[in-house]
Write a protein that binds this DNA or RNA. Structure first.
Lengths: 137, 137
DNA sequence: TATCATATCGTAATGGTTACGATTTGTAAA
DNA sequence: TTTACAAATCGTAACCATTACGATATGATA
């Protein structure tokens, strides 16, 4: 998902294009990994003095709903990243910088065989640790 | 992990055995699935009027540290269950009742092959949905 | 049974998130 | 281009799970 696609998606859903919304997209495009609401607020405050929590959280939820962002919970805090739409995969997540590496392995087909009569709605497979760069730092 | 093992484990680590600590163990043994701090407080208040948050959370953390409980985060709230010590496995978790079913599949060996130079510290593989009982209810 | 480290209490503080009335601003129609 | 209005944002308070702390009570050991 890139910025142009995201703006198009918002328009399709009838949402307005505002400066802040564009800046939020820019932030996540540059981030290339998971970021928190706090990270985003810090970024936006450079351009907008006194940005409202309401604006930040409302847009994060909106973006998540329409599929621009995906989210995961780490240490009691929600983290967001640009959605990878192309195909199903999972992530290695660096605990230090938040950057992710795609993992192609998904064991769900195998798992489904062992879960007769269970209604599977969702699954989460994440690997945590330090990326090569952050090990050196 | 059963209650006797857990109490033994606490003693080994030099922690005292109190009525509340035993009751917390009873709660989780009967629970047979993931429960929140709130659930536990509700249970303890039946026997102890005005139980302190401090007591509840301190003991939950303690139990997690010594390996009596394992924990996961669902919907922004920490959930705890008795630790399954016997072997490495993952869980299907029912969104309704919190009960779990063990999943023997673990794709980490395969994943490790694709993560050269990454320092893997941890991983999470969980399946969410409704168990057979909760689908009927 | 005396001692003392540990456990608990009562409650306030913290941190992330949500909510809301008032105000501003894109957008599309006139 | 102006108007009209729904949507977006602001400023701030409330919410909820969790953490923290000084004072008090209580298991465990000697």
């Amino acid at each position: 998902m890139n910025i142009a696609e995201a703006i198009e998606l918002l328009k399709e859903h009838g949402y307005k294009t505002t400066g802040k919304r564009k800046d939020i997209l820019t932030f996540f495009e540059e981030a290339d990994g998971y970021r928190t609401a706090k990270d985003l607020i810090q970024y936006l405050e450079e351009s907008y003095d006194g940005i409202s929590f309401d604006t930040v959280y409302r847009n994060l939820h909106l973006y998540n709903e329409v599929g621009i962002l995906e989210t995961t919970e780490l240490n009691g805090e929600k983290h967001f990243r640009m959605n990878c739409t192309h195909h199903h995969h999972h992530h290695f997540i660096c605990k230090d910088c938040g950057k992710t590496k795609e993992i192609e392995v998904c064991p769900m087909n195998e798992v489904k065989k062992t879960l007769h009569n269970y209604a599977i709605e969702d699954h989460k497979f994440e690997i945590y640790g330090l990326c090569p760069k952050c090990q050196l730092a």
